[in-house]
Design a protein around this nucleic acid. Sequence first.
RNA 1: GCCGAGUUAGCUCAGUUGGUAGAGCAUUCGACUGAAAAUUGAAGGGUCCACAGUUCAAGUCUGUGACUCGGCA
Length: 313
Amino acid sequence: MTEAGSLIPLLVLVGPTASGKTKLAIDLAQNLNGEVISADSRILYQELQIGVAKPSLSELDTVPHHLISIATLDDPWSLGQYQQTARATILDVSQRKRLPILCGGTGQYVRALLQNWQVPALEEQPRLRTAIENWGEEVGYDQLWKALGIVDAKAAQAIDPRNKRRTVRAWEVILSTGKRFSSRRGIYSSPYNTLTLGLEWPREVLYKRIDQRIDDMFDQGLLEEVGGLIAAGYGKSLKRMGIIGYSELIAYLEGEYSLEEAVRLLKRNTRIYVRRQANWFKAKDPQIVWLKADDPALLENALDRVNSWLNLN
RNA sequence: GCCGAGUUAGCUCAGUUGGUAGAGCAUUCGACUGAAAAUUGAAGGGUCCACAGUUCAAGUCUGUGACUCGGCA
């Protein structure tokens, strides 16, 4: 156990998509001598720009940003890879006497860092994974899960039988490492002393912001971006990853439905995503200090909170 | 004005020979420690346009009225 005083201070900024995290993170970093570390599973990829609302080049110039555009779609990252890199980055920023600001909407990434999940970083094994998926399609994923129960009962117990992806991943890890999927599970204490700020909007207002932002994305050339990715051969893998904004437009460009339908689905899927995000960042979570995002004094409110937190340390 | 079709959940609509209602979408809530914008479970929500009639019983049959959409004048 580490003493509270020796924990690394980490400011965390969470909230649903389109809530204004990017801007607030930059403002906070400028005021607090900080650096922004992204916790977003898609901003990780260098090929994705408009559809994932990646910070602009000028925004990236104002303060140092980390874990943005560092992976490629040819070589998707696992949670373990993200976690390892993020840990090292937080440590590095902190050792340079600057404040690390973890900012992002991927709940799993944030929680894996804050709760210190033990996640070995086995990257995706494309050929093995495809073989397992074919196996699942053939005999049924429930059979895949049952078979998992024989090899690794603990893992099967921890995985919902309906969760195909996690079942496949479990087999992927077992077959490529020769170790049990469940062997590294456990809860460990956090190396960070955190303050978590959350950006809060009334649902209805947030939905309107999302619709507006999606319209803006088209103005910025989202269709061209997606067309370029298809031309570069990424259509299939993007569709497989199921990334909102890309899946829908790829389907449109491939003639599955109209552009109007694609836009409708994009907006709809983003709203559904917001609701799922709320499962990770809950309004009643005592660890999160929720700030009203439409308050003109948002930055001042946030700075007040952060400064009193820093003074305690 | 006449003829026809329609009015059922927030929206689009099903609803068998009469037995007080369903679906999809939307909305809301939940699970998730090795791909997570993924995967996945559940819930709330109806004076069935109104009034009258027939009937033990009407969303369903009959009449009248209101409104909507076509067509004809």
